[in-house]
Nucleic acid binder design. Structure first.
Lengths: 196, 196
DNA sequence: ACGCACATGTAATCAGTTACATGATTCT
DNA sequence: AGAATCATGTAACTGATTACATGTGCGT
């Protein structure tokens, strides 16, 4: 039940919640996401799938198509969806990395879901805390910092600013949509609006 | 000699190159850098220090001050500085993470060092490649992406843009400084100029 | 007296990579 | 014919975390 750990397992469960896939497909999808979540090896994917299977969070369908190589398609179960819901709703530990943030973000499909807003707000707090620590460190180092150190600080400040801007914009959009849907005015437009 | 691995060991060697420190100090410094490089546990720091000691890349000075707890101050050796120089000059594998980029950036002290510019350019290429992969994936997914997926894509695009902007600005600054110092006009100002 | 910051270490465990092992299909 | 892509898995290893183990000095 550790939150930061096992996140990879739950992330692939989240991918299966959107669409039934094989281990190979999962690798392709994660490759497409690049360094947003990282591209684990098959040595991580297949054991994770086997573990999910043993916990009855997924089922397999083995396709032995003649002329084509063996293919196992994994699908999420009801218990899997419940476990996934519990995972995305969990508060993230502050030590959690950017990758873990994105891993939890991706399975979230409902713009009205309070877990989504909470997730973004938690990330915002973590980024603000990181930024403050960076500013404090920069002030302490002051003139003594080497060129590389100085550049690293600048880099950290620049990227946290950008992340903060994005988070604020996303939260503002989401909150506007939530208000709109709470007024019961064309709730399907709230969903559209949140997508871009 | 693997590049991505062992980077943590070389990073602490880089910290010791700037200033002799204890294991506890290293932890404090890395905590100050926050998620830029991550905050490893003592279970990682002390063994790394012991390994560096065995390779003669660092030396220890044991302070047994009466009234104060035991303190071991680690200093970099000549061999350590050579190994560090070789490490920062190594081309980074494209799979290397953002943390590894920052870890190598921090020990770089010389603005005229070609390894510094090469490092930033390599990172730039990696970010551009990541961005292209993200755009391709976004185009493939198109309308089928769930809210979370869509937000993750937007997030990735926003952060890569910011990183690219920073890298371009840093490279422009560095190149301007290099030109200035090559003209032999007050080379110490080139150093000052690159710090901010 | 109690807890917190300082200060160092080891052992069990874990998550993940790399290398190994296999085999069909499709493109050049 | 050979390479690349599709497709699945296991075993050895590695890097790191967590928990354990120990002890001092300082503030309240």
């Amino acid at each position: 039940m550790a939150a930061g750990s096992e996140s990879f397992r739950y992330f692939i469960l989240g991918l299966l919640a959107q669409q039934a896939m094989s281990g190979y497909d999962i690798k392709q999808v994660m490759r497409g996401l690049g360094s947003l979540v990282g591209s684990p090896s098959f040595g991580a994917i297949y054991p994770a799938l086997h573990a999910l299977l043993q916990e009855d969070l997924v089922t397999v369908e083995i396709l032995s198509r003649p002329d084509k190589p063996l293919r196992k398609t994994y699908s999420i179960t009801g218990a899997g969806r419940r476990a996934l819901g519990a995972w995305v709703a969990q508060p993230v530990p502050s030590s959690d990395s950017l990758k873990t943030f994105v891993m939890r973000l991706i399975p979230m499909a409902d713009p009205a879901c309070p877990a989504l807003i909470a997730h973004l707000q938690q990330r915002r707090e973590a980024v603000v805390a990181h930024r403050s620590a960076l500013e404090r460190t920069a002030a302490e180092l002051d003139g003594r910092a080497s060129l590389g150190q100085h550049m690293a600080m600048e880099y950290g400040l620049a990227t946290t600013s950008a992340e903060l801007d994005w988070l604020d914009a996303a939260l503002a959009r989401l909150q506007a949509d939530t208000v709109a849907s709470e007024q019961e005015l064309r709730p399907e437009e709230a969903l559209q609006g949140s997508r871009m």
